[in-house]
Structure formats: C-alpha cells, structure tokens
Amino acid sequence: MILNLIAPLGTTEGLGIWIAAFLTLCIFSFLYKDNPFYKFAEHLFVGVSSGYYISIYYWNTLKPNMIDELVKGFKALGQGNTQKAFGLDESGAVMAEPHLRMLIPLMLGIFILLIFISRKNAWLSRISFAWYIGVASGIAIPTAMSTRVLLQAQGSIRDFCSYNSDCATSAGLDPQVATTALWINAFLLLIGTLSALAYFFFSLPSKGALKVMNKVGIYFLMISFGASFGYTVMARISLLIGRLQFLFYEWLGITIS
C-alpha cells in the first residue's frame, strides 16, 4: 500500500476533489445523526440542483419551445402573415413549428400559476390539470397495457413451444436452446404467474382453491422479492465501493500495489 500526497489544493482539479470529499463526508455524517454538516450539504445539494434544473428547463424547454416560437409568431404577425404566425403554411396545413399556437400551452401554464397569484381565479388551474392528467393517462394506459400485460403474457406463453420443435421454430425460439428444461421453466413461470395474479383478485373472498392459489402466489412473490433484494443490494454496495474508491484513491491518494 502506498500513501501518495493528498490531492493538491492549489489546482482546480485538486480543489474540486477536496470539495467533493468534504461533501461526501458531510452526507456520510448522517449515519451518526442529523448534524450541521449534513444540513449544510443537504441544503447546498437541494439549492444547487434546483437552480440547475431551472436553468435546464429554461434553455432546453421554455426558450426554444415557447419564447422563440412566440417571437417568431409575433414577427410574422407584424409582417401581416397571419397564417405563418399561427404555424400554418400557404395551403393552410399545420406546420411543425407552432409559433403563436404556443399561446394555448402558455395560457394553461398561467392558469396553474393562478393558484399562487389569485385565489379567486385559481379554479382555472383545474382546466390545466384536467388537460395534463387526461393526456398523460391517455399516453400511459395503452403503453402500460401493451408492455406490462400483453408482452408479458406473450413471454409467459412462448416457452411452452419448446416442447415441440416445429412450434419452437415458428415461435422464433432457437431449436438448440428449446429444451425440456425451458419447458419446465415455462411451467413454473405459468404456475407463478397464475397464482400471483389470483392474489390480486380483490372482489373474490379468499376461500377454498383461491386461498391455496393466493398462498402459492405469495410464496412466488416473496421468492422473487428476495432475489431482487439480494441483486439490488449488491448493486448498492458497488455504489458505496465507488464512493470509497474516490475517497481513498483520488482524495487521499492511497493506492494498492
């Protein structure tokens, strides 16, 4: 083990390492208890990240999508080109650039701000929220149905083809991989899926066969949670190792040779 010089404070890089190491230790101090160092790092982290995101939103979203479009739209309006101002071409077709059509989202945004500005008119914010939730649900629900239900169902059924080589080939499975072991795996997967799904029947009383299935379902769920827990803990430990490596190697300059 060789102990080199601690990162030099005189250089920009060295100063950065010292600040990072200090803040890392401040956050780690929470393991003991809440203290002024942790409070300092916490507030700094929240403040810096908020400022960073405000800047990101302004330059990446608000300016190009809203301000620039409105400026272009009002310029076109000033030149007497009403169609272009509202993002329509000469034939009246909708162009990709919305220009003054952005007044609608601007208005919806102002409605939300009314909550903080005018309690009397705050009810208008509900229009914005209704729009947002409606559009968001419209996008999220079909996507969830496709990825979480249909594709999962497909994946659960597909491996049963491995029992039959013709079926396996036509289902896109590699016949070399399509073995009896795969079929047994598919069978276990089916039992697990059906029993876990049965656990989430809320309107049926847990009696008789359903009770047995619920119990099997819970066992399957807990086994999968256990496996997931172990896997994720390993990943978290690697994050801790990364931070310790930074402290020992980059800050303290300790290297193992």
Partner: peptide, 28 residues
C-alpha cells in the same frame, strides 16, 4: 380474463399450436 387467456394459451401452445402467440403478435 387475462388469467383464462394465459391458461388456455399455455395449453394450446403446449399442444404445438402458435395461435395464441399469433394473437399477441409474436413472430410465427
């Protein structure tokens, strides 16, 4: 419905048919 679909689908697929996989758009 999904429960029944999965059970039937597994039996039919195990019997060598790819009908249910086709329904879900799998490559057949």
């Amino acid at each position: 419905l999904l429960w029944i679909f999965l059970l039937l689908g597994s039996i039919v697929t195990f019997a060598g048919s790819t009908k249910f996989l086709s329904l879900l758009g799998a490559s057949t």
